[in-house]
Every structure is written in C-alpha cells, then in structure tokens.
Design a binder for these strands. Sequence first.
DNA 1: GCAAATTAATGATTTATTCAAG
DNA 2: CTTGAATAAATCATTAATTTGC
Lengths: 200, 200
Amino acid sequence: MSPAASSRWCPTPEQLMILEEMYRSGIRTPNASQIQKITTHLSFYGKIEGKNVFYWFQNHKARDRQKLRRKLTRQLQLQQQQQQQQQQLYYYQLNQQNHQFQGYLDYSTGSSTLPQFPYDISNSFLPQGGGGVASTQVMNYTWKEDIPQRLEMEKMYGHDWMMMETGPSSPPCARPLQTLELFPITATNLKEEGTTSKQF
Amino acid sequence: MSPAASSRWCPTPEQLMILEEMYRSGIRTPNASQIQKITTHLSFYGKIEGKNVFYWFQNHKARDRQKLRRKLTRQLQLQQQQQQQQQQLYYYQLNQQNHQFQGYLDYSTGSSTLPQFPYDISNSFLPQGGGGVASTQVMNYTWKEDIPQRLEMEKMYGHDWMMMETGPSSPPCARPLQTLELFPITATNLKEEGTTSKQF
DNA sequence: GCAAATTAATGATTTATTCAAG
DNA sequence: CTTGAATAAATCATTAATTTGC
C-alpha cells in the first residue's frame, strides 16, 4: 500500500468519459492496436496502462449485459404482478380515449402481454386536482398523425413508475407527510434499488 | 383570471433545492417508486407531477454530461494543438517510459515477457500472424483457462478502428499523427453541438 | 427606470441506440 | 433479422435573464 501508487487503476472522469464514448460508438473488444492507441491517448489525462483499457472494456461489456438482464427480470416480475391488479379498468379507460391504440391494447384477452402502460403521463401523473391542461396537451402530442410512430411515450416512461397510484382513489389532497421518513435522501438505498422490492 | 396555468412546470426554489440535493447524492434515473415518493414529497412545496420529476432528472443528467463533454472537447482540441507542437518529443518520451510495451511492439518474437501485466495480456495484444494481419484473431485470450468467447466481433459498426489496424507498413514508430486521426471520435459523437446552434 | 428585443436556461417531446430474446 | 424495452441524445418550445434604445 504505498501511498504513492494505488494498487489499482482509478480512472479520471475524463478517461471514463472518453472510454464510454468509445463504448457507445461501438467499440467492445478493442484489439491490440486499438488498445495501444487508446492508452496512449488517455495517458494525457492520467496514469493508465494498456491492461486497464483492456479490462475496462471487458468489464463494461459484461456489466452492461448483466444490468440489462437484471432489469428485464425485474420488469417481467413486475409485469406479472401488475397483471393481477387494476389493469383491466385502467386500460379500459385509456382505450376509451386512445382508440388509436385499440389494436395494441388488447386487454380484452386478459393475457395482455401489455407492456406496462404506455401512454400519456398525464393520467397516471396527475389524477387529482384539475390539471386537465397538461393532459390535453399530452394527448395532442401523442397522436399527431394517423401513423402511430411506434409507441411514443411508451418508450419513455414505459414503466412501472407511472403505474403507481393511478389515482382515482388517491387522496385528492394527500398530505406529503411521510415524505420525510420516505426520504432519507442521503440514503444509500435510493441510489440503486430503493423501496423494499425484494427482487434478487 | 385564473392562474392562467402556465404551460409548463416551474419549480419553486425549495423544490429545486431538494432535487439538486438528491441529484448530488447520486440519484440519476429514479424508478417508479422513487419518482412517486419524490413527487409526493415535493408537492408540499408547490404543484408538481411525476413527469416533472422524471423530466427533471433526465434533463439534469443529460445537461450535466453535455457540460462535461463540452469541456472535454475543448481540452481535447487544446491538447491536440499542443500535440502538434510537441508530437515528436511526446512520443519519444512515451517510448522511453513504456518499457512494457517494448515487448508488445516486438511482436515478432511472440514471447514477450512482460512483468507488468499480471495476466499475460501482452499476448492478447499481440497482433497475430505478425506483419499486421491481426484482423483475424483480435482477442486471443491466451491466458490460461478455458476457451474464450470466441471472437465475436460484435457489430463494430463501420468504424475505422478496425481498419486502422497496423497497416501494411504499420509504422512501428511512424508519425505520431495517429493520435490525431485516432480520435476524431469527437467528430461523430462528441459533436460539440456548437454552443450557438440556432435555428437552422 | 422600463419595456421591447434578444439571448440563455430549462421543461417537454421526439428520435436514435443499445442489448438481447424470439 | 426483427422486435421489445429502456435510455440517452437531439430537438422543440417556453420561460427567465439580459441587453438595448429611449
């Protein structure tokens, strides 16, 4: 543990940034020549060796896959749970409004391979209180043309988080009380998982 | 007249402070549960919806990155300029310093004994077949243990990276210009959307 | 000082990538 | 090769800052 040199490489933000850029640009397993060049270049920003670059790409690729796999798993489980919840009603309501998605939302089958719930946030987000304004706007954007350009917002929000509390039953003037206990902002929990979701 | 609801959310100072604090504490992409809680909590300080929280984190994160990227780009440009001034000297020094790469560079022997690399990575760096025909076995995990995941080249979307390879002449110490052309990655990805990209 | 005009910030949408499963 | 799901990047749009001429 010589103070002068850490036992392992610690990438500087700049190095990390560049590596990530490269990764995103398609590089996965750089060859010798590439590693050499990368290393040379990154050495501008701090101490670094070829093996660091090599390992970085190895690890990054692997962890990328791992992360996605985990998310998929969690998502599947969530999906299954939600299936048993008030989806029927919810999607029915949505369908009334978004006939555009009728074909897509096949809730009638019950099998509903429905992903989560896509569509406009307004509904899920501001259920209570006359916030109708935003709602309309969102809707307009949602289906601008005849062509459903794929799922629009679905992609984005496409997820559980909007699912929660589709509020008709939620207190119109909910008091943000528990927030304090819910928010140990500094809590390390929030960082990754948060909430008591079992999973994994 | 009624509040004439603004068309978009305008965070109160308190909300902003809390959001920034959370961001600082490490939260980047809150999930459904987190967003729900955050929204509830912030609603105490003013009107707010879940999507606002969602967007806020998206934007904040993106613009944070953007800022860093711009800074990096500037640095890169600066250093590239400096490089043009000191290329010769720089590469000379590099060669002197990186003894471990001597073996790497000397791939003709194929038996580089690099003390620095714990896992015999040097081999994996070696362009196989010598003479710069490395295009075949890029990643040859010769280091012990079972078979590697073959060399799935992945996609490697048309990027010059692979092509560059040690060309036919493969200048062993050719022009240091390499570095310059090596990182035009900025051209495609970093893009440096000029701070003043106005209407086009 | 003070609005109209202009520019910078930032909220909200849309488009493009990414990985891996079918 | 196509598609689903998630996200990041790019873009659009509106509000806040600020500059400017009076």
